[in-house]
């Protein structure tokens, strides 16, 4: 049974139909990569899946029930979303910021409990932030902030992760570390991950499935190994591509 299911979903922005009639099933254990040019609807699609954006047509079902019937807190218990933009705010510490991820699992009063700490500690360790726990978020670099947001998502501990360009700002060591960890979450714990990225080759290396958004309403979805080839990527990016063989699989480079 699918965890999340889109039927005849349309994503529109004023004057443009970005995605039409999307039928898409996300099953436990799948790691999806969404590829597309700028403005092809990747972010809008993720925000629609998270219930943060009104959908004009079609339906989204989460665990066989319409997404609209869930309360916000119930959605947050099941899925977490990483946003592309970082927002500055009043000063908080790394620890406080990561602890926010526990909110969906707290009671009405929303006050932290003792077992929150285990989740927070594990997540900060995973994202290599443990030594910065008591620092102010203002003092972090762009990449560290990104990792903090990823840690907050891990603290949230959902069945489905929606990641909008998670590799942005990360150095290559942390990019691989992050992708490996989410790959593990998918294969070992049957979590679902949906990720948009422009890091084509990194994404192809770790993602079991790929959704291609052509930006004109057209889309294609399938297993990465079966779907991805030079022709499709050239059509997707409107740019000539070259395929190189490597020990980590095919590497695609713009010509």
């Amino acid at each position: 049974m699918g965890l999340l299911r889109c039927q005849q979903l349309a994503i529109e922005v004023p004057g443009r139909n970005l995605i039409t009639r999307l039928d898409w099933n996300i099953e436990p254990g799948q790691f999806w990569l969404i590829l597309g040019r700028n403005g092809s609807g990747k972010t809008s699609l993720l925000q629609s899946l998270a219930g943060l954006r009104k959908i004009q047509q079609g339906s989204i079902d989460l665990q066989q029930q319409s997404l609209q019937q869930y309360r916000r807190i119930e959605i947050a218990q099941r899925m977490a979303i990483l946003f592309q933009q970082q927002e500055s705010s009043f000063p908080v510490t790394v620890l406080e910021s990561a602890s926010a991820g526990r909110h969906p699992h707290r009671n009405f009063w929303g006050w932290p409990t003792a077992d929150d700490q285990t989740f927070v500690q594990d997540a900060l360790q995973q994202m290599d932030l443990l030594s910065l726990a008591h620092h102010s978020v203002d003092s972090l670099s762009g990449g560290e902030r990104r990792r903090l947001e990823l840690a907050t998502l891990l603290v949230q501990d959902p069945a489905l992760f929606l990641l909008d360009e998670p590799t942005n700002h990360l150095d290559l060591h942390h990019q691989i570390g992050m992708l490996k960890h989410f790959h593990q979450l998918a294969t070992e714990q049957q979590r679902c991950i949906v990720m948009t990225s422009h890091e084509l080759n990194l994404g192809l290396r770790y993602c079991s499935h790929t959704l291609l958004l052509y930006g004109n309403g057209e889309w294609e979805a399938g297993k990465t190994a079966e779907l991805i080839n030079t022709e499709r990527l050239e059509k997707l990016y409107q740019h000539p591509m070259q395929c190189h063989k490597s020990t980590n699989g095919d590497i695609y480079l713009p010509a």
Binding site: Q47, L52, E74, A76, F83, S89, G110
Partner: peptide, 20 residues
């Protein structure tokens, strides 16, 4: 108060963490 702590990070983020 705990919801306000989330709200300072922006309405979208707070909504994603389960705040109406």
């Amino acid at each position: 108060a705990p919801r306000l702590n989330l709200f300072v990070h922006g309405p979208l983020r707070a909504a994603a963490l389960g705040v109406a």
